[in-house]
Amino acid sequence: MIRHHPDNNMLLEYSSGSLPWAMSLAVSAHLQLCPQCRQQRESLNDIGGALLSESAPQTIDTDAFSKLMGRIDAAEQQTREEERLAGEMGEPTARPQRPVRHTDPILSDLPKVIRKLISRREPLKWKRVSNALRTSRLTTGQDRYEVAFQRICRGGQVAEHDHRGREVTVVLVGSFSDADGVYRRGDFLVREPGDVHRPIATQDQECLCLSVVEAPVKVTGLLGWLVNPFLSFRPA
């Protein structure tokens, strides 16, 4: 059962199309897993529609999910157009690539918006951060947030860390816990600057999360002075 959700303000921003693109990606993934929030979004849309009906007519697009799909498709279309133009100018072009088929079992049951995002990219490159954690940065066509998969091994404990900026996490596979509770598939967490926690995956399976962060985390404790200088941050 999903217990953690985006608040109404974030859902309203998402529905109106004013939420930053990377954050919208996380909300969209959550909505595809959470019937409760889909219903809440519809209620917010109804309220917004009633308010708009009393105001001056204007065109508005409230389908944020379609916008997400459009952004992903537009990036691929731009690449094809650049290759076509290069070919007309006699420049060498790369051979068209087929959609990537990911054989990793942990990627077999992801929300549609995430599947579409990774199916048209190069095979994922996983970087080992610690014995418990691997991460894979995703390219999402924006320059404000870093978007990545966070993969915790069975029973793995991530180093305790602070947040220098807002972080949104959506649990996609498995579950993890920290001092504040247990988070399962579909749960949507928002961490603000100053929040400190230490995620621990359950013993029965790996945990895969989507993270959207606006600043690098800061490892606390004695390990921090050694690790923090090497923590990078790359929006893409």
Rank of each mutant, 00 (worst) to 15 (best):
1 M>A: 14
1 M>W: 08
1 M>I: 14
3 R>E: 14
4 H>F: 13
4 H>G: 03
4 H>E: 14
9 N>C: 01
9 N>I: 08
9 N>L: 10
10 M>I: 15
15 S>I: 09
17 G>P: 13
18 S>L: 07
18 S>R: 12
18 S>E: 12
19 L>C: 07
19 L>R: 08
20 P>S: 08
21 W>R: 14
23 M>Q: 15
23 M>L: 15
25 L>H: 00
27 V>Q: 00
27 V>S: 06
27 V>G: 03
30 H>Y: 02
30 H>C: 05
31 L>S: 02
33 L>N: 09
35 P>W: 06
36 Q>V: 12
36 Q>L: 08
41 R>V: 15
42 E>M: 12
44 L>M: 04
46 D>Y: 00
48 G>H: 06
51 L>S: 03
51 L>E: 15
54 E>K: 12
61 D>H: 14
63 D>R: 11
64 A>I: 02
66 S>H: 06
68 L>K: 01
70 G>D: 14
77 Q>A: 11
80 R>V: 03
92 P>N: 03
96 P>Y: 09
96 P>L: 09
100 V>W: 15
100 V>E: 14
102 H>P: 13
108 S>R: 13
108 S>E: 14
111 P>E: 08
118 I>C: 02
122 E>T: 11
124 L>M: 14
124 L>I: 12
125 K>R: 09
126 W>L: 04
133 L>M: 12
135 T>F: 01
136 S>L: 07
137 R>T: 10
140 T>V: 15
141 G>A: 01
141 G>S: 06
141 G>C: 07
143 D>C: 05
144 R>Y: 10
146 E>I: 00
149 F>Q: 02
151 R>D: 10
154 R>Q: 15
154 R>G: 04
155 G>A: 04
158 V>K: 00
172 L>M: 10
176 F>Y: 15
177 S>I: 05
182 V>A: 08
184 R>F: 05
185 R>I: 12
189 L>H: 03
190 V>D: 08
191 R>L: 07
193 P>I: 00
194 G>Y: 06
194 G>Q: 03
197 H>N: 11
200 I>F: 02
205 Q>F: 01
206 E>G: 05
207 C>M: 10
207 C>V: 05
209 C>W: 00
212 V>H: 01
213 V>L: 07
215 A>G: 01
218 K>A: 03
219 V>M: 03
220 T>A: 03
220 T>N: 08
220 T>I: 11
221 G>K: 04
224 G>F: 02
225 W>H: 06
226 L>N: 00
228 N>P: 02
230 F>N: 02
232 S>V: 10
233 F>V: 05
234 R>D: 07
234 R>Q: 09
234 R>S: 06
236 A>D: 13
